[in-house]
């Protein structure tokens, strides 16, 4: 998928992606020459079609997680399906979770909890944050575009 600014004969480049929360998606592209912007708007079916392939327009903020599409898209996933690894958190540079952050993590459905925990942990580790707090989670969620996590 490419967008060409015909007057400039210039390929428009991806600028930003927005998820309004109603199942639709908006992706903004801009011409680097004339600065004209255009928005690609997809309906829920089109959005789901792209999502079902496990890809995101504009790229990913966080690395792909194991079983990501199955976890986030399966209706009625079992809460008992996953259990944390016994070695989780024991690796060098381990990130400590504050009690408040643990409590907040517990509110995430267990079907996706392991994946969410890994995303936040990786975020903290990469920034050398030793203690993961709800405030760090808020910042990460905003920076990584993790609405609903």
């Amino acid at each position: 998928m490419k967008f060409l600014c015909i007057p400039c004969d210039h390929v428009m480049e991806f600028v930003e992606r927005q998820l309004p929360g109603d199942g639709t998606l908006a992706a903004v592209f801009a011409c680097g020459k004339c600065q004209r912007e255009m928005a690609l708007l997809t309906n829920p079916m089109e959005t789901q079609f792209v999502s079902s392939m496990g890809i995101k327009i504009g790229g990913r903020e966080v690395p792909t997680q194991p079983m990501e599409v199955t976890r986030t898209s399966l209706e009625g996933g079992s809460d008992a399906a996953f259990r944390p690894s016994p070695s989780a958190g024991s690796s060098p540079g381990a990130v400590e979770w504050s009690p408040d952050a643990v409590e907040r993590l517990q509110r995430v459905p267990s079907f996706v909890r392991g994946m969410v925990k890994r995303i936040y942990t990786d975020y903290a580790r990469e920034r050398e944050i030793r203690v993961l707090t709800p405030e760090v989670m808020d910042t990460a969620r905003s920076e990584l575009g993790l609405e609903g996590m």
């Binding site: 998928m1 060409l4 015909i6 004969d9 390929v11 480049e13 496990g54």
Partner: peptide
């Protein structure tokens, strides 16, 4: 009108769709 078609455009758009499929 004449303008370039998909295969005549080799500039990356930054949408990273193909890259993600290849990565998968």
């Amino acid at each position: 009108r004449k303008f370039r078609t998909y295969n005549q455009v080799d500039h990356d758009t930054g949408s990273e769709l193909l890259e993600q499929v290849l990565d998968q």
